[in-house]
Amino acid sequence: MENTNTNKITEYQKQRNKEEMKKQLISFALMIVVTLIAFTIVATGVMEKMFAIPVLLILALIQVAFQYYYFMHMKDKGHEMPSIMIYGGAWAAILTIAGLAVITWW
């Protein structure tokens, strides 16, 4: 056995961690781009309110997907339970907001 007296990580693991980090850096760049698009739409007022709101919400969902799947590793193996919990939470969240919207504007 090598590495008997240190907590060394193998070169293979290091390389894999590095590749993962690269993917996360790319997601960060894309999240910045998405944020810039969202702020630009509102700051310049190029879009009608009717189009702007759904576009802003879609941009938010894209950014959140990057956060969950790349930054929080939900794309990796062993994340079945986390997915159930987050999608379960999101489902209850949609019902909550829908319910409040119905009693307010029906």
Binding site: M81, P82, M85, I86, G88, G89, A90, A92, A93, I94, T96, I97
Partner: peptide, 12 residues
């Protein structure tokens, strides 16, 4: 993760 699922509903 269980806690975060609950937090999602709280913030919703």
């Amino acid at each position: 993760w269980f806690f975060l699922g609950g937090e999602t509903v709280l913030f919703a």
